[in-house]
């Protein structure tokens, strides 16, 4: 692997060790038909590289946002980070423990407790047949954190009030709640195992705006109170701008730009990031004309060679079509684009 690719960012000298470190992460999906069908119907293996040599690290207490459109691989990264999907190559280290390489079951268990996830669809993420109390209680039971049933029930009530619900809501079923309230329940469940790191996979994209604000503010409040670290997955740049301290932009499985949030929004480098920022419909833009953007995202099964973005890039150069650009570090940020090559 190209040495420039291994790390997007040179580790700052004065910072603490990062809580989460992702190195050379790669995931390939096999979309081929079963062997028998391939033999009969012909046609070879079909693979999709959903995530391709992605590196980033998240410091304690930070919110790292991964932004991308469909096919960018952001949800695949989320699943690998929490241990739901094994990577094809590369590693994810959380608090010094390799999520996929750790052999000791005991260490694994302790690590799992510290990782949680909040899902996109609050209507699918809560078991409809379970009472809210049992849903929130489940992680506490699974990790044998509180042996006494009474204490456990008290803790569940505490968690429910922490996310702004009534402790008595524990006896109800999920269908009795609105989308926003359900997302609060899902947050309470995520907090139950006392995690340090929470992956939020599009946590507000299924919610209405007024409720979205409630949930985003709640997440921020909890972060301050409990010192949580977030990996925030979203396609909505305006939302990301409000929550993130650091942002990584994904395009067809590659991290094309990474920078502190303020820097990225003030001075986007990669042509794709600029295009995305231009494309977001914004209420502040009422009546303004905007730049036209060409083309659509190509099929990820068959991405363009070289820089994946070259067919849509207004600044395309001949070697963009053949050479994959390396990650070029620029201070605390990194960009994967030939435009920024030295000389």
């Amino acid at each position: 692997m190209n040495p420039a690719e291994t790390s997007l960012v040179s580790p700052g000298p004065a910072t603490d060790a990062p809580l989460v470190e992702v190195k050379g992460l790669r995931r390939v999906f096999d979309l081929s038909k079963p062997l028998l069908n391939r033999l009969i119907e012909g046609g070879g293996r079909v693979t999709l590289t959903a995530v391709d040599s992605v590196d980033f690290s998240i410091r304690r207490g930070e919110t790292y946002a991964l932004v991308g459109e469909s096919g960018s691989g952001k949800s695949t990264i989320a699943k690998m980070a929490v241990g739901l999907l094994p990577p094809s190559a590369g590693s994810i280290t959380i608090e010094g423990i390799d999520v996929w390489g750790e052999k000791s079951a005991d260490v694994q268990r302790r690590m799992r407790r510290r990782i949680q996830m909040i899902f996109q669809d609050p209507f699918a993420s809560l078991n409809p047949r379970w009472r809210v109390g049992s849903i929130v209680e489940e992680p506490i039971k699974a990790f044998a954190m509180i042996p006494d049933a009474k204490d456990r029930a008290a803790r569940v009530g505490e968690l429910l009030s922490l996310v702004g619900l009534d402790p008595r809501d524990g006896s109800k079923f999920p269908h009795e709640f609105s989308g926003g309230q359900r997302q609060r329940i899902a947050i309470a469940r995520a907090l139950a195992s006392e995690p340090h790191f929470i992956v939020c996979d599009e946590p507000t994209s299924a919610l209405d705006v007024s409720v979205q604000a409630q949930v985003l503010n709640l997440l921020r409040e909890l972060q301050e109170r409990l010192g949580l670290t977030y990996l925030f997955i979203s396609h909505n740049l305006a939302v990301v701008r409000h929550v993130a301290t650091r942002v990584g932009v994904l395009y067809l499985g590659r991290l094309v730009e990474e920078a502190p949030a303020r820097e990225l929004f003030a001075d986007p480098k990669h042509p794709y990031t600029r295009m995305l920022l231009d494309a977001v419909p914004d209420i502040e833009m009422a009546g303004k004309e905007r730049l036209a953007i060409a083309g659509e995202i190509p099929n990820p099964v068959n991405p363009p060679p070289g820089c994946h973005f070259h067919p849509r890039c207004p600044f395309v150069m001949p070697h963009c079509k053949t050479v994959v650009p390396p990650v070029l570090a620029r201070g605390d940020a990194g960009v994967r684009c030939h435009l920024f090559a030295e000389g």
């Binding site: 799992r112 996830m117 993420s125 078991n127 047949r129 489940e138 990790f143």
Partner: peptide, 26 residues
């Protein structure tokens, strides 16, 4: 593939437990 099953896998429940306690009632 629903997210409530993912949430159960996340906390390390065994497949059989997930099948009986989460999937079966649904």
């Amino acid at each position: 593939n629903k997210e409530y099953v993912l949430a159960a896998r996340l906390i390390g429940l065994r497949p059989w437990t997930i099948m009986v306690k989460h999937v079966l009632p649904n």
